[in-house]
Amino acid sequence: MDPLLTLASVIVTPAALVTLGYAGLCWVSPFKTCKRCAGTGHTTTRFLRRPRACRRCDRGLRLRTGRRVFNYFHRLRAEATR
Protein backbone atom coordinates (compact mmCIF):
# COMPACT_ATOMS: atom_id res chain seq x y z
CA MET A 1 0.00 0.00 0.00
CA ASP A 2 1.25 3.45 -0.90
CA PRO A 3 2.16 5.59 2.14
CA LEU A 4 0.71 8.75 0.56
CA LEU A 5 -2.61 7.01 -0.01
CA THR A 6 -2.67 5.88 3.60
CA LEU A 7 -1.88 9.38 4.83
CA ALA A 8 -4.56 10.90 2.61
CA SER A 9 -7.18 8.43 3.83
CA VAL A 10 -6.23 9.09 7.47
CA ILE A 11 -6.72 12.83 6.95
CA VAL A 12 -9.78 12.81 4.69
CA THR A 13 -11.90 10.23 6.53
CA PRO A 14 -12.23 12.11 9.87
CA ALA A 15 -12.78 15.41 8.05
CA ALA A 16 -15.59 13.88 6.01
CA LEU A 17 -17.17 12.36 9.12
CA VAL A 18 -17.11 15.68 10.97
CA THR A 19 -18.58 17.52 7.97
CA LEU A 20 -21.36 14.98 7.47
CA GLY A 21 -22.08 14.97 11.21
CA TYR A 22 -22.45 18.75 11.29
CA ALA A 23 -24.65 18.68 8.17
CA GLY A 24 -26.86 16.09 9.87
CA LEU A 25 -27.03 18.22 13.01
CA CYS A 26 -28.06 21.27 10.96
CA TRP A 27 -30.76 19.20 9.26
CA VAL A 28 -32.17 17.70 12.47
CA SER A 29 -31.79 20.75 14.71
CA PRO A 30 -31.37 23.96 12.68
CA PHE A 31 -31.58 26.26 15.72
CA LYS A 32 -29.26 26.68 18.69
CA THR A 33 -29.62 28.75 21.84
CA CYS A 34 -28.43 32.33 21.71
CA LYS A 35 -25.21 32.88 23.66
CA ARG A 36 -25.92 36.50 24.50
CA CYS A 37 -29.25 35.96 26.27
CA ALA A 38 -28.69 32.27 27.20
CA GLY A 39 -31.92 31.26 25.47
CA THR A 40 -34.23 33.58 27.41
CA GLY A 41 -34.84 36.12 24.64
CA HIS A 42 -34.12 39.02 27.01
CA THR A 43 -30.98 40.89 28.04
CA THR A 44 -30.44 43.70 30.50
CA THR A 45 -29.33 47.23 29.73
CA ARG A 46 -26.06 48.54 31.08
CA PHE A 47 -27.79 51.42 32.79
CA LEU A 48 -30.16 50.40 35.59
CA ARG A 49 -30.13 46.75 34.43
CA ARG A 50 -33.60 46.97 32.89
CA PRO A 51 -34.69 43.96 30.79
CA ARG A 52 -35.18 44.37 27.05
CA ALA A 53 -35.53 42.10 24.03
CA CYS A 54 -32.33 40.47 22.78
CA ARG A 55 -31.01 42.11 19.61
CA ARG A 56 -29.37 38.95 18.25
CA CYS A 57 -32.34 36.60 18.41
CA ASP A 58 -36.13 36.64 18.47
CA ARG A 59 -37.08 34.01 21.02
CA GLY A 60 -33.76 32.83 22.39
CA LEU A 61 -32.94 30.71 19.33
CA ARG A 62 -30.54 31.47 16.50
CA LEU A 63 -30.11 29.74 13.15
CA ARG A 64 -26.92 27.67 12.91
CA THR A 65 -24.26 28.86 10.47
CA GLY A 66 -24.42 25.65 8.46
CA ARG A 67 -28.18 26.03 8.06
CA ARG A 68 -27.72 29.63 6.90
CA VAL A 69 -25.32 28.43 4.19
CA PHE A 70 -27.73 25.65 3.16
CA ASN A 71 -30.64 28.12 2.95
CA TYR A 72 -28.56 30.51 0.84
CA PHE A 73 -27.62 27.86 -1.71
CA HIS A 74 -31.15 26.47 -1.73
CA ARG A 75 -32.58 29.92 -2.50
CA LEU A 76 -29.89 30.52 -5.15
CA ARG A 77 -30.72 27.24 -6.89
CA ALA A 78 -34.46 27.92 -6.73
CA GLU A 79 -34.02 31.35 -8.30
CA ALA A 80 -31.73 29.98 -11.02
CA THR A 81 -34.19 27.28 -12.11
CA ARG A 82 -37.20 29.59 -12.47
Rank of each mutant, 00 (worst) to 15 (best):
V18W: 04
M1D: 07
T81S: 10
C54E: 00
R82C: 05
C54D: 01
A78Y: 09
T33Y: 13
V28H: 11
L76A: 15
G24I: 12
R59K: 14
A23R: 02
T43R: 05
G66C: 02
F47S: 09
K32V: 14
R56S: 11
L48S: 11
T40D: 01
C34N: 01
C57H: 04
Y22N: 08
H74S: 15
D58S: 14
A78N: 12
R46T: 07
L25P: 02
L61T: 04
L25R: 15
T44D: 02
T81I: 13
V69H: 04
R67E: 00
P51W: 03
A23S: 03
R46V: 08
S9T: 13
G39A: 05
D2F: 09
R50K: 15
V10Y: 07
A16D: 02
K35N: 08
L5M: 11
R62P: 00
V10I: 13
R55A: 15
V28L: 15
L4H: 05
T40L: 01
R49T: 10
T65I: 06
R59I: 09
R68Q: 11
L20P: 00
R68Y: 02
R55L: 08
K32A: 15
A16V: 14
H42M: 13
A53H: 12
A8P: 00
K35H: 07
E79R: 14
A80C: 03
T65V: 06
C54A: 03
L5V: 12
T44L: 12
